[in-house]
Every structure is written in structure tokens, then in C-alpha cells.
């Protein structure tokens, strides 16, 4: 069954077609969400939300772009929503702690170890993930799509609905910012 037939069946709410879609693209969706969210639980949660939305709103997919591009867009938007909610919760917990309503101390999230990183790079990758987390949203998205999904500038531009040159500029800025953040980090450690 090709992609078009699969989507046509999915539009008719065919459960078997939905299962094939999930099993084909679950790795891609999960890996992207994991790169952006840096938490396995949040990535699983977001991946489920993505496929639930795909099932609900497949009729709005006009097939003007590739199905994977549409899927990436939903994943990125859901993951960024998740991040925003998490930050809001963090801020609320901080305010509560100021008023003494939250007895528990603010817990720093543990270092994130991506399961796909080689053993000898784990420590450095955890530091890099922490630095990536400090980047502006657009730079972070472009960097993660490029590095963890190995997407080309053109593919990233399609997902982010911008031009290749804009993506190139975003990635250049992301690299510069990361170098700056890492420099400050290592200087503090020294």
C-alpha cells in the first residue's frame, strides 16, 4: 500500500490504516519530540498527542506537502506547546515557593542522556543538550531537526515554513550561541 492509499483510508477513519501510519512514523515523531523536550515521558506523551491529532484532523491534510512534513509540523508545534506549559508550571511553582505555599524545594531537572548517543559522548552530549535548551525556540527547532533527525536545510525550511537561507541563518546563529553558552559554562567550571 502506498502513502496516498494509506492517507485515503485514514481519511475514512480506517483503524488498520491508522495502525500502519503509527507504526511507520512513530520513531520519527518520538525522536523529534525527544530532542525538543529532553524527557522520555514527555516525548511519549507528545507522540501520542500527535497521532491523536493526526487521526482527528487528517481531513485537513491537503496533500500539498509530504505527509512526513505535515507530521513534523504537528510534532514540533505539540512539543513546543508542551514546553510552554512546563515553563508556566515551573514559574507558578516558583511563585508559590516565594509565598511559602510550596514546601518542596525546587528540583533541578536531571541531566538528559539521549539513548541514541554513543557511550563516550554521553557526558558531553548532556552538556550540549542543556545548552540547546537555552536557545531561542526557532534556533532550537532548526538545530534539533538538523542534528537529531539529519534533515537537510530544504526539509527544515518546509517544516518551519520559511526559506533555506533563513534556516541557514538560524543554524549559524544557533551554533554561535551554543559556543557562547558552552564557553561561559566551562569558564565557570574552571
Amino acid at each position: 500500500m502506498n502513502e496516498r492509499e494509506l492517507i485515503a483510508l485514514l481519511k475514512k477513519k480506517d483503524r488498520e490504516a491508522f495502525k500502519i501510519v503509527v507504526e511507520t512514523w512513530q520513531g520519527m515523531v518520538y525522536n523529534t519530540a525527544l530532542g525538543l523536550l529532553q524527557s522520555m515521558e514527555d516525548a511519549e506523551d507528545t507522540a501520542q498527542e500527535v497521532f491523536m491529532q493526526v487521526y482527528e484532523s487528517i481531513s485537513s491534510f491537503k496533500e500539498e506537502s509530504k505527509f512526513s512534513t505535515w507530521l513534523y509540523r504537528i510534532t514540533v508545534s505539540k512539543a513546543l506547546d508542551h514546553l510552554r506549559k512546563k515553563k508556566r508550571k515551573k514559574r507558578f511553582a516558583f511563585i508559590q515557593s516565594l509565598y511559602g505555599k510550596n514546601d518542596g524545594q525546587m528540583i533541578e531537572p536531571p541531566d538528559f542522556f539521549h539513548p541514541g548517543i554513543k557511550m563516550e559522548n554521553k557526558e558531553n552530549a548532556a552538556i550540549l543538550f542543556k545548552a540547546v535548551d537555552q536557545l531561542p525556540v526557532n534556533q532550537k527547532t532548526a538545530f534539533i531537526l538538523n542534528k537529531t533527525e539529519n534533515l537537510t536545510y530544504r526539509e527544515i525550511a518546509e517544516i518551519m515554513e520559511s526559506s533555506e537561507s533563513a534556516v541557514d541563518a538560524l543554524l549559524q546563529r544557533a551554533k554561535k550561541n551554543l559556543q557562547k553558552i558552552l564557553k561561559e559554562y566551562y569558564q565557570k567550571l574552571d
Binding site: N31, E44, F51, L178
Partner: peptide, 29 residues
């Protein structure tokens, strides 16, 4: 150090969800 850290994402392998992802998704739906 910075260069080494920046290149730590090289050769990163793609992560996949735990087994039975679809079963958990169906239950949630």
C-alpha cells in the same frame, strides 16, 4: 572542549518509543 562538546551529536542514532506504543495510544484514545 567546546569543539568536542559541539561534535558530541555526531553519529547520533535515532531513538524509538518503548514497545507496544500503538496499544498505549489506543488505550488513551
Amino acid at each position: 572542549k567546546i569543539d568536542k562538546t559541539m561534535s558530541s551529536f555526531d553519529d547520533i542514532e535515532k531513538a524509538s518509543p518503548r514497545p507496544f506504543f500503538f496499544t498505549r495510544l489506543e488505550a488513551r484514545m
